[in-house]
Each structure stands twice: as structure tokens, then as C-alpha cells.
Design a protein around this nucleic acid. Sequence first.
DNA 1: TAAATAGTTCAAAAATATTTGAACTATTTT
DNA 2: AAAATAGTTCAAATATTTTTGAACTATTTA
Lengths: 95, 95
Amino acid sequence: MTKQIQKNEASLKVFKALADPIRLEIIRYLNGLDHEVACGEVGHAMQISKTSGSYHFKILQEAGLITVQKIAREKYVQLDRSTFDHYLTHFWQNI
Amino acid sequence: MTKQIQKNEASLKVFKALADPIRLEIIRYLNGLDHEVACGEVGHAMQISKTSGSYHFKILQEAGLITVQKIAREKYVQLDRSTFDHYLTHFWQNI
DNA sequence: TAAATAGTTCAAAAATATTTGAACTATTTT
DNA sequence: AAAATAGTTCAAATATTTTTGAACTATTTA
């Protein structure tokens, strides 16, 4: 019975979202674009399965690190820089 | 056979170190001090076992988030703010 | 010197995170 | 209408992380 106290603070969610090599790659990819891209395009560039992509994009979204817009059949994603700024750039102010 | 590609970049190590509620607590505790404290004192304040403390301090140290100085029987730790600044505050410059 | 204190190491157990493939919904194209 | 495309959901398999307690080293105190 070692269950961790689930404070589930926003900051923990953000750092957990950043603590994965694929998601860091996705973030770097999106950072080089600065406009919306379809999940599929990103997933293809990362060479991951669509199921895995779906999983990772959900985690990024729930952490608030990306914004998502569904247009027809596709889901377009983009970095939400305000979240990065809040938890990373302004880390000491919000710790 | 799902082993992840171990790029083990420094930034990944840092975010993994931050992705745990106990370690975030430790960081907040140390941030409120700004001078060295013994591991035991911190662990006691966090209400964790010494084994668990030893584990978490090792992860923080290997990520470069704390500096450690052993004096006699005790190990004194302190935040290494330059690492926080590099990976968090200056995130966009180092991504 | 014996006992106490601070911390580490180890392997097993427990908890959590990630991947996989199949089946599914919704939309678009032919 | 059928086939193709984009993405989701689910449960099982796998991988990784964290906790636990016992045994250990090194130092200090009685």
C-alpha cells in the first residue's frame, strides 16, 4: 500500500508531461513551427504509432502545454506558451 | 520489447527529477531556506523514510538540481539554482 | 569500546506509465 | 454507398519508477 498522495497539482502534471523523451521531441518539433499542425503529421515525424501519439497528445493537452482544435477529421495542435512561461520561465515566482 | 530510446539527455533527467510530488516538496522546502541543510532534516520534514529520502536526494543530485557536501556523518544539500535557471527559466533558449 | 546516529545499498514488492493491436466513431474521397 | 483517412478507446502486456525493510559503512557520543 504505497499509493502516493495524489495532490495532482498543476505543476506536477506539467513536469510529468515534460518527463518523457517523445513528448520533449514533440515540443521541440512544435516549437520550430509556431503554427498549428495536425497530430498525424507530428506523430509521423516522430515515427510513433497513432495510438501512442493519441496518448502523448492527451497528456500534453491535460497539462495545458498544447492547445487543440478539431477541424473536420483532423486535430490541430499548437504549443501553449503561456503554460510554459508560467511553470518554467517564471518557475521561481510560482514554485 | 518496448524499451524506450535512452537518449538520457540532461533536460530529460531534470524533468524526470521534477516529476514527483515528494521531490517537488523537497525543492520547495529547500527554496525557503537558501542555505545548506542535512538530508535527514529535510526527510524528517517530508515525513519519508530515510531509504526513500536517500533515493530522492540521489535523483535530485544526478539531475544537478542540488549540490551535496558531506560533513562527517551528515550530508548537506542545497539547491543548485544555475541548473533550474538553465532548464526552466531559460527553457526557450535551451530547448 | 559499546551504543547511537546519518546515510547507503540491495533485492523484492508495489505502483505507475507506456506500448500494442483490435475495434470503434466521424469525416472525407471515390 | 464503399473505401479511405484521422483519430479515440479499451484491456492486456511491458517497462519504469518508487517503496520497503534488512543489512551494511562510517562517524560520533556515552
